[in-house]
Design a protein around this nucleic acid. Structure first.
Lengths: 194, 194
DNA sequence: CCTACCGATCGGTAGG
DNA sequence: CCTACCGATCGGTAGG
């Protein structure tokens, strides 16, 4: 009885892979069907629409993501430690759920223009606010430099993390730990030797 | 006689806008026709294929771009100055030709998979190599820290610049000079006060 | 889950 | 540059 949704879940995971690879709109239901060994029309026995498949994948990913960032940001560590923790979490999350992060990061235009998926863009905005708060705290406490435009700095950090989605491969030359170390070192210390 | 291509060029500039806005594949020839006040079929009086339109836009943009980076990289300034110049050029270029940079940065997947447009991805690879050389020079000369993984650092810098394409607006809150200043300051000096 | 479709849209074309 | 199309592909459906 628990196994009833087994096939359904298999299809959903196949869709996840294709959405991440080609983008949601570019991935066709015929490709999903082919990969699942099924006719495209038969997908509609399991799911009402293509959008439903996306929603079922993305919703349970985005909301906990936001919640986790909130938890880190509201801990009582100092701003540099919280920033480190957020970078660490963001990149570890990339390794654990690369497909979902790719979808959510690369299809932002689609989510933003779709009423149904507005919550994804809203979650991004919330996450940005959380990062911004940490930057602001650090600048006020003198833990970060106060001569930087924080909005631009925030954009830079976000691009940095979301951009990593498109080149990092777990089986590649670098471990995620190396990437985290380099990104934290560069972000905190800069290129110039001290 | 010189005005013969006037209409043709108008259409090309309309296509440029739409390719940048929606991505090359998502922008349809019907949208281009509509925006030009023409039927989609009539576009083929001016251009043989949709790919031709893209090629005519992208080729004369990409090759000089690569050449310009090469010139900066081969100047006899020290590595930090060359890096500054490259960032400066990259961001000024973003202001002057935002559409073309968006196309070339955002449709990389398409260019990479298309044989005809391989030269775009190759130009990116060449540009990355140029940046990498400057980073390497600086690290060897002791002008940059030597404890950073340069490959990962390079990725970070590229993402930083290409990511700016998606949020910077010339009519927005920040001037490009502010963005350049912040990016250079953060990249060279880091978040931690000295 | 298959058979057999649907209307809409895609890039592109022949003939004027 | 328009008229009037083409075959291919899209997301989705009725009936079994």
């Amino acid at each position: 009885m628990k196994r009833k949704g087994g096939r359904r879940d298999e299809i959903l995971q196949i869709a996840r892979t294709l959405f991440a690879e080609k983008g949601f709109e570019a991935a066709s239901i015929r490709e999903i069907g082919d990969a699942a060994g099924i006719l495209s029309g038969s997908l509609y026995y399991h799911f009402a629409t293509k959008d439903d498949m996306l929603d079922e994948l993305v919703r349970p990913f985005v909301l906990p993501l936001l919640k986790h960032y909130e938890e880190i940001a509201h801990s009582d560590a100092d701003a540099p430690d919280r920033l480190r923790d957020m970078i660490n979490f963001g990149l570890q999350n990339l390794v654990q759920k690369p497909d979902l992060l790719k979808i959510v990061a690369n299809d932002r235009k689609f989510f933003a223009k779709s009423e149904r998926f507005n919550y994804v863009e809203e979650a991004w905005q919330d996450i940005f606010q959380i990062w911004y708060g940490v930057l602001q705290d650090g600048a006020r406490q003198g833990e970060f430099r106060n001569d930087l435009n924080l909005h631009i700095t925030l954009r830079m950090i976000i691009e940095l993390l979301n951009g990593t989605v498109d080149w990092f491969r777990p089986d590649g030359r670098f471990t995620i730990e190396q990437v985290i170390e380099t990104q934290v070192a560069l972000l905190f210390g800069g290129l110039t030797p001290r």
